[in-house]
Design a protein around this nucleic acid. Sequence first.
DNA 1: GTTGAGCGTT
Length: 306
Amino acid sequence: MSHFGRSGPPDISDTYSLLILNISFRTTADDLFPLFDKYGKVVDIFIPKDRRTGDSRGFAFVRYKYADEAQKAVDRLDGREVDGREITVQFAKYGPNAERIHRGRIIEKSPRSRGRSRSRSPSRRSQVIGLEIVLNIITPDTVMIITTTGIIGGEVAAGAGIGTIDTMAGNEAIAIEAGVVAIVQTMTELVAGDAMMTMSDGAGVALLKVVVLEGVCHLVGPLPGVEALIAAVDHQVVVFHQTVAILILGAFHLVVLIRSDRPSHELEFKLISSFAILMLFSDIFPSSFGRTGSLHDFSIISMTGL
DNA sequence: GTTGAGCGTT
């Protein structure tokens, strides 16, 4: 039963589901709607009920049409007291949305790179060879480079990279499926931001949450020779579809590249300001392996000045 | 009428 009249699940394609935990047993969808709708277009609210008694099970799913709005709700409502209880608001992990995410893996579809690098990791399609973080706005000319990526361990983390920069609070990787990369970046000290990215291999779905201090947002279209574009967000969420490499730059630069097996219109993008994240994948940009220096040294990167 | 970790409607 959904908040919007119909019985049964609504059209869940392209929606972003949040799990709301710890709501009181009397809280209804109608109670939740005004609260969540403040942050974006809520397309459905569902509160699981006990099959027999019909009582609320104490949690709810709130579905947003747009990822960034869902993220905003998480930021603003997680920990908020509702009906006397401190609710938890997070992206739903299982269920309808998760299933959607698991479809269409390019790892199986792309002949490219198959048979390559088998000795290192058979399941790995793309390997992060470098992660570079540039803090343009906050500290001009400062370039911090993470030259090596760490393997988090296990099939799940294959290809995932973790880097640590001592002036930052830390980075961590999460929710990754073999073959791709996920990086969670937390930059609490310098840019007061944190990031959460989840990618399923091939399908390349990522959520990147970045809390940026200020955000001048600029959108740059696909670059010549670039099949798909990037993504980013002003503050909060980025969803990449079949993106195997990304670069998010600050307000001064943008851009980037990436290869995607899908048309760019399936990508959602917004720009993040204040810092940059670059991930290079060996099977895409082999020549850049091991390079260091400023971003400008990367020929494969296009910069757009503002 | 109470309760309190959790991941969905047929």
